[in-house]
């Protein structure tokens, strides 16, 4: 079975210099798509990755990452909407490049589909009441 998941990788300082993603491809036959990455030498690194491959390879790859000291979070938890603060104005709808916000034509409320979110964080500052929050 082929799986495709979006994950956030936190690289501790000591592993930033190692070719981790290369090993994922070479040893575990996984495909990757880097959605976002922040790396500074001597500091903790962060990468948002879409990773796909056979379930067994995927599991082995994740196991490898964990053993290497990389902390893994699933992406869907990372950008969340503060429901108390959201006014459902709709300013986010045309800002989001992946169409994660959709207007319900009947209720005129804005639905947020975080499975479509790639954590580009464009919505965070474009939201007038600042209802979108990013948690890495």
């Amino acid at each position: 079975m082929v799986v495709s998941k979006r994950i956030v990788l936190h690289f501790p300082r000591r592993v930033v210099e190692r070719p981790i993603v290369y090993r994922l491809v070479k040893d575990y036959d996984l495909e990757f798509n880097i959605l976002k990455a922040f790396f500074t030498p001597e500091e903790e690194g962060l990468m948002v990755l879409e990773l796909s491959g056979e379930q067994t390879d995927y599991d082995k790859g994740i196991n490898y990452l964990t053993k290497a000291g990389v902390r893994i979070q699933s992406l869907s938890q990372d950008v969340i909407r503060n429901e108390e603060r959201c006014t459902h104005c709709g300013a986010c709808v045309t800002i989001c490049p992946t169409g994660a916000f959709e207007l319900d034509p009947l209720t005129r409320r804005i639905n947020f589909y975080n499975e479509k979110c790639v954590a580009c964080v464009l919505c965070i500052k474009a939201c007038p009441p600042r209802a979108m929050e990013v948690h890495f």
């Binding site: 006014t87 459902h88 104005c89 300013a91 709808v93 409320r109 007038p128």
Partner: peptide, 25 residues
């Protein structure tokens, strides 16, 4: 505007609101 898409100068352009209609209701 509320249909979500408008053709302007031959281009289909997506619309967004800054005023909250659900809260107005």
């Amino acid at each position: 505007l509320k249909s979500g898409m408008i053709t302007i100068q031959g281009k289909e352009v997506p619309t967004a609101s800054l005023s909250s209609y659900p809260r107005a209701v």
